[in-house]
Design a protein around this nucleic acid. Structure first.
Lengths: 138, 138
DNA sequence: GGTGACTTGACAACATCATTGTCAAGGTTC
DNA sequence: GAACCTTGACAATGATGTTGTCAAGTCACC
């Protein structure tokens, strides 16, 4: 049985708090720092900046880049396509990318931006981001 | 004043009826027949076949290819990205691509696959498909 | 304070992709 | 029967994604 010191005992980590410099973020998502700069140049991710112009990535940024990597590496989507997908998520106010891995069901609508009965630990594919990890930061 | 012989007097044209051979479809969407065959090979459009294996495209197919062209030529989305976008439209049961050109508003949900007060003649961009023309055939 | 990190802009290599072109051989259609 | 259609195939060209490297300067941590 797991010891009781679980995430209930950890201090709350704000997923929007910028904490990672670019080299750390690159390691976390297994990508080159050069590539992270390109993603930013393309407008796909916008890390925060310190007063001395150092990039700082948040957990949400990491999640976003994870989705970018999944979409480019596994699904072959190019960066322009990802831009459109992210734009649609923002306009619809929904984590539509999660639908790629949601259990197929005959549902008429899905307006809840937050996944409800989804188990974040249950990755839809062995290599894909978890359903709760859509790049949208809502 | 326009003569009374308008579309009210024309026979109803089923947009799902396959009527165009590949050369005609190519002209309609200004694309090479070779390219239409590639789109089909990629699973992006599925024209009907005659008993002698001749492709026949419907208005819905034409609309779908028009979206493909718009997304590739104007937005730079590659074919894999379009596949994901179409897949999401199917899974969500919504014409999400129309949201790219919908008037930006603070709406909480949009579950109606059919545009309501949208003027099909009012293209969102000079070069884009009309809002009512999302590739989804619902 | 100095070393390794960060920043900027820039160029380049390589693999992949999108579109068009063309070919051959055979069947279809107007 | 000529022009169209089908299949699979190869190829050219421009674009893209990722990584690498460069130079010069600034920052931050030890």
């Amino acid at each position: 049985m797991e010891p009781r010191r679980t995430d209930a005992s950890r201090p709350y980590r704000d997923p929007s708090r910028p904490v990672y410099v670019i080299s750390v973020a690159a390691e976390l998502v297994r990508v080159h720092p050069r590539t992270l700069r390109i993603y930013e140049g393309e407008g796909l991710v916008c890390p925060a900046r310190t007063p001395t112009n150092i990039r700082l990535y948040s957990e949400n940024d990491i999640r976003r880049v994870t989705w970018i990597r999944h979409l480019t590496q596994n699904l072959g989507v190019n960066l322009a396509g990802i831009r459109v997908l992210f734009e649609l998520e923002e306009r619809l106010g929904m984590r539509i990318l999660e639908q790629l891995y949601a259990e197929r069901e005959d549902h008429s609508t899905s307006t809840d931006p937050e996944p409800t009965d989804t188990d974040p630990a249950a990755a839809p594919t062995p290599d894909g981001p978890t359903p709760a990890d859509s790049p949208s930061n809502r």
